[in-house]
């Protein structure tokens, strides 16, 4: 599904990703852990196609094709989704309006039929219910004045609506209370399937109790320095990154 080959990325003239290689087959969930500033969010922005994240060498293949030349909206239409570590406030635009505009923009790009207001309302209410997002929240401007946890839930609601083929969750668990964490995990697990893949970025192995990954990777210094199974997360939690980083050096 996704293949990252020897990826080098510069931000503001500084190289942050320094030869990152990672392959995520369809049907799998991979987790990335790593110290602060190691380049995890840089990787997620690069996957989403954010401007200013310059790929200097290497490639990103999605469903067998390079996507590094595509705009963010083109990637979204192809089924790439990023739940942001820090979701952005859009004042004045209600959550409902934003989500419908986004879903219809994706559908339009794919040549699918647009959803009218009534159809959309039914859909968003149904998806919202499972995430504890009510009408009141849908009528508020997107993320504006939302609490940290509400913002994260709104991100997952978007994921549930768009049903992406490949989703990156950048620290979606940070700032969530334990009930919200379970809701989010349920939302993610509901989307798991043989033709979808996910990349979950987290600092806490606790999340991985709920979203059980097929593989765990350690990102440090702009590179994947170790990969393993579920148990790697437990090991990291116990002994930190130092030993692994030293061993890799």
């Amino acid at each position: 599904m996704l293949e990252i080959r020897n990826l080098h990325v510069e931000v503001g003239g500084k190289e942050i990703l320094k030869g990152l290689t990672l392959s995520i087959p369809a049907g799998e969930v991979h987790a990335i852990m790593g110290p602060n500033g190691s380049g995890k969010s840089t990787l997620s922005y690069t996957l989403a196609g954010r401007d200013g994240y310059v790929v200097t060498s290497g490639d990103i293949l999605y469903q067998g094709e390079s996507i590094i030349g595509l705009l963010p909206e083109q990637r979204a239409a192809k089924g790439v989704f990023l739940a942001l570590q820090y979701p952005i406030e859009i004042p004045g635009v209600t959550t409902m309006t934003f989500l419908r505009t986004a879903l219809n923009a994706q559908r339009k790009a794919r040549g699918e039929q647009l959803m009218d207001a009534a159809q959309f309302l039914r859909l968003v209410r149904a998806k919202g219910k499972t995430l504890n997002v009510n009408d009141e929240m849908l009528r508020r401007p997107l993320n504006a004045g939302f609490s940290g946890g509400e913002k994260k839930r709104a991100e997952i609601l978007q994921m549930a609506l768009f049903e992406p083929k490949f989703a990156v969750l950048d620290e979606t668990d940070s700032g969530l209370d334990i009930d919200a964490l379970k809701l989010v995990a349920e939302g993610v697990n509901a989307l798991r399937g043989p033709d979808r893949a996910m990349l979950v970025i987290t600092h806490y192995q606790r999340l991985l109790d709920y979203i059980v990954p097929d593989h765990v990777h350690v990102l440090a210094g702009g590179r994947i320095i170790k990969s393993g199974g579920r148990e790697l997360a437990l090991e990291l939690e116990k002994s930190g990154y130092d030993d692994i980083i030293k061993a890799a050096a």
Partner: peptide, 27 residues
């Protein structure tokens, strides 16, 4: 902001449409 435009485009909304959406919200 650049952030807002990235956010909207990453959700599939082309930049121009995103600007119209945000401005309409503002008005």
């Amino acid at each position: 902001s650049e952030d807002q435009l990235f956010y909207a485009t990453s959700r599939g909304i082309p930049a121009e449409e995103a600007i119209a959406l945000i401005v309409n919200g503002f008005c």
